[in-house]
């Protein structure tokens, strides 16, 4: 059901009912499609990176940039306020744009549309969009990405897939971060894997530690393959 169907019905009691069948997020989806068209035209593969606050999105970006992928990478940093994350990735000498959502709990397609012109798209192969830290809202708002990748840090607990199913269902890959902390918690990694795969059998799962660097090579190799396809 896309587009708007409008039909006016005057009921017997004189009340007027207007049928307006419209997707609530239609406006956002339309702009996301336009973003996607611009990205495709410039042959940029776009990854929407999502997680709860502090799961390690910026750390994974730093590790990915340090590892080197052979790809020309740019970053859009989405935060409610501040530019700390943008400053962290700028150190790698790559194009970075900071978006402050001013309170909004997610990035939407229009916020991305407004900054696309600030990026040298023609000189990029891969664009990361670090979403606002939040496990619920970003999953619902397309921004024009080729794929969504989510992070879950092991300290968040193994109940998260079934508590936040949408995020796991929408993502192409799950990065289980902070694996170095597993010995200090009672987290059941096999349960996370099992539940996440039940929700999304196609989910690609990476066990990573930004502290020790474990798993980063596997993740970046896979990412490189995906970007090559895109």
């Amino acid at each position: 059901m896309t587009g708007t169907v409008v039909e006016k019905i005057t009921k017997e009691d004189g009340r007027v009912k207007v049928k307006v069948v419209t997707k609530i997020l239609e406006a956002n989806d339309r702009i996301a499609l336009e973003n996607r068209r611009l990205f495709d035209k410039a042959r940029v593969f776009v990854v929407n990176l999502m997680s709860a606050p502090g799961a390690g999105k910026t750390s994974v970006l730093e590790k990915t940039l340090a590892q080197g992928t052979g790809l020309r990478i740019g970053v859009i940093e989405g935060d409610i306020a501040g530019s700390d994350d943008a400053e962290r990735v700028e150190k790698f000498g790559i194009p970075v744009v900071q978006i402050n959502t001013g309170g909004a709990c997610h990035l939407d397609a229009n916020m991305i549309y407004e900054v696309i012109g600030d990026l040298p798209l023609a000189e990029l192969d891969l664009l990361f969009i670090e979403n606002v830290g939040n496990l619920v809202c970003p999953a619902e708002f397309k921004v024009g990405e080729d794929m969504k990748v989510m992070l879950l840090s092991v300290t968040e607990g193994h109940d998260k897939p079934l508590k936040y199913p949408l995020m796991f269902q929408e993502s192409s890959a799950l990065i289980l971060n902070k694996m170095d902390l597993v010995p200090y918690t009672d987290v059941d990694i096999s349960k996370i894997r099992k539940d996440a795969l039940s929700l999304n059998p196609n989910l690609k799962i990476f066990e990573v530690s930004c502290r020790t660097g474990a798993g980063i090579a596997e993740w970046t190799a896979w990412l490189g393959e995906q970007a090559g396809k895109g």
Partner: peptide, 23 residues
């Protein structure tokens, strides 16, 4: 958590229809 943006989108959709239909 994003119910505010959803509510905003609903209001935009129906306000648009309201203007168009002159209600």
């Amino acid at each position: 958590m994003h119910e505010v943006s959803i509510a905003q989108s609903i209001i935009e959709i129906v306000s648009g229809q309201c203007r168009k239909g002159g209600y």
